[in-house]
Design a protein around this nucleic acid. Sequence first.
RNA 1: GCGAAAGUGGCGGAAUUGGCAGACGCACCAGACUUAGGAUCUGGCGCCGCAAGGCGUGGGGGUUCGAGUCCCCCCUUUCGCACCA
Length: 735
Amino acid sequence: VPPVNWCPAESTVLSNEQSSGGVCWRCGAVVEKRDIEQWFFRITAYAEQLLEDMRELEGGWPERVLTMQRNWIGRSEGAYIEFQVKDTDERVRVFTTRIDTIYGANAVVVAPDHPLVERSPLKEDVRRFAERVRAASMQAREPGAVEEKEGINTGLLAVNPFSGEPVPVWAGNYVLMEYGTGAVMSVPAHDERDFEFAQKYSLPIKRVIGRVSHDQPAIAHDPTHPDQSAAMDQAFTEYGVLIHSGDWSGKLSQDAVREMAEFAEARGFGERAVTYRLRDWGVSRQRFWGAPIPIIYCDKCGVVPVPEKDLPVVLPERAEFTGAGQSPLAGVPEFVNTVCPKCEGAARRETDTMDTFVDSSWYFFRYCDPQNDSAPFDKEKVAYWTPVDQYVGGVEHAVMHLLYTRFWTKFMRDIGLVNFDEPVKRLMTQGMVVAETFYREGETAGSKVYINPSDVDVVRDDKGRVSSATLVGDGQPVTVGPFEKMSKSANNGVDPNEMIKAYGADATRLFILFAAPVENDLRWQEAGIDGALRFLRRVYNFVHRWREALAGAPKDAAAAGEFNAEARALRQATHRTIERVTNDFEGLRYNTAVAALMELLNSLGDFKAEPRSPSPAELFVVREALEALVLMLAPFCPHVAEELWEAMGHAGGILSSGARWPAFDKELARREEVEIAVQVNGKLRGRVNVSAGATEDETRAAALSDERVRAWTEGKQIVKTVVVPGRLVNVVVKG
RNA sequence: GCGAAAGUGGCGGAAUUGGCAGACGCACCAGACUUAGGAUCUGGCGCCGCAAGGCGUGGGGGUUCGAGUCCCCCCUUUCGCACCA
């Protein structure tokens, strides 16, 4: 059992994913290693599928998240190679992705806790070394810190199966027991770590890969070539051509990697293999809130799973919270003491609970059938609702929740609970609202106490940068920290109630959605809300200015009589806006949806008719526009929309009055006339209006007869004209 | 170091995916109405220029009638991973 991650601040074990970067995902404390026996889920059995199935997610998931998962799973293709250990019957197995470099191996380096160490003639020394390395690795280390390489010669010799050469076996602190086989072949000429190690201990460095030179294909066979013989000052890690490699010399790395592995396989001293960086998911937590791990320990029968009929194991109502870092359930005898399901003798329950991410891996399946008390859920119900079409969450879960739930779904598929591979078809990683942080001058990262922005007087220059910040009251200078997500711990949150009091919930929400695309972080700045509020006020005033007149508006277009050009233009704007907003909603582009609504209001504002003496046609188009506007506003600003909907003479609320999302008429959404940009040699020289249905020839003729364009083409030879119907004309002239 | 994404006005951001760069909004400027304006309305607002016009989407090159968008090189920023053999 490998050492597990331990958060000293929360006194619990964490998974690898939850201690990514060496810090606790919740509290940021630097994580230590501990030896504690824990329960794991074998997510590694799904490593290949998790990688494979990402193809289904391509396009629907942000590339960033897929990349993070790919890196996290860390597939690497290579080979296991066995080195015979001299004077023993042992073989030491190494994993390598660069078998093509094996003739350059100067040593086999094993992890300090590798079992082979027991065979070392110097095993006492090696043990002491291993103890030291272990103690160092258990310590909390600053994230990203790399320890200096250290090693000790075990006195054993291993035989390179390709060259027959004996090489020393070393134990090194940079070889990890948990990855691959816990042993590597050291090829300093072609691996940076091995190079560093060899330099420190003055081990021989032998170059066996040459740079491929297209001019000199024979370079490989010329050991006197400067590129090959020069003393190396760093490792050459690229693929190249094999040299000093016996019969393999002259081969290209990419071929040798495959062929040498096949050779080793045929000779029985190796095999091709794939390894993963992904480790099993440690799910035991020393917390109270979590699903108890359904395991019973019996002195006679050993470890016994709780039988299905007794599931779920329910948390006791009460537990002591000592803060001492024990599993709280261990202090609840009524919970701990039970009978063995096998022999019915006295037995004890597991007192750790499961990681919260176990629950979040499938909560949305349970949501489909939340009352079910005989099964996790009804398969039919889940089949109806899932997989999830659109999921919204933060990137911070890229290699936690979003990886676990994919694994969980595959497992549920394998036991027949669902019939698909992936739980989430489309993923949107939404941004966060971030704000500046403030703390007292002179405080350092570790000790600083954040000050709430409302307690700081900030003076900004005309570019919005903070030019001075002082504490309200005593005027003490305050240091401005970076933008961080609004949170309690950064103390940079904005009180929603204050916002609602000042601007109303509708305007606040409208502003947040309008200010940036959902996936962007939003730097909080209150100034922008004014715009949202102004917009809502204008809509409100517009509706109320027209409400009485609209009571007499014709019910349908046929009864409205003749539409003049102005009225037709407004209808066009209305239908075009419905089209845009509808599409934007589908694509979660709320910022442009709001912009489109603002544009529609601007069109209404430009509409010449006055509510004093409107024609039936004018009344019709204004009502059409206003109703569409209010209905489309409803998801953003429900309170205002409801109010206005009623003001326009609809009894009851929007939903109860049977209103629906407005439909657009493609015909009406189309412009009658379009403005065509006219370029001469790619430069904009004029604009002409043509009817929307104008042919290419008509458009070209209109463009060429434009006065300004003529000034630019006069006396020149027109080489060709490019016409993009409905958009532009480019006249290419010469001379 | 490796990997990914992104660089557009003073700011947040648009641009139907190769076709009028800067929609919409904030800020700013001018004017109107006002006892008043941190209200409202009208107009202006990329840069240089009196203008004509020129320049302009991080920098440099390329493809194209046409490039923010495609290709190559470079720079910068953000994020992720980091002894993974």
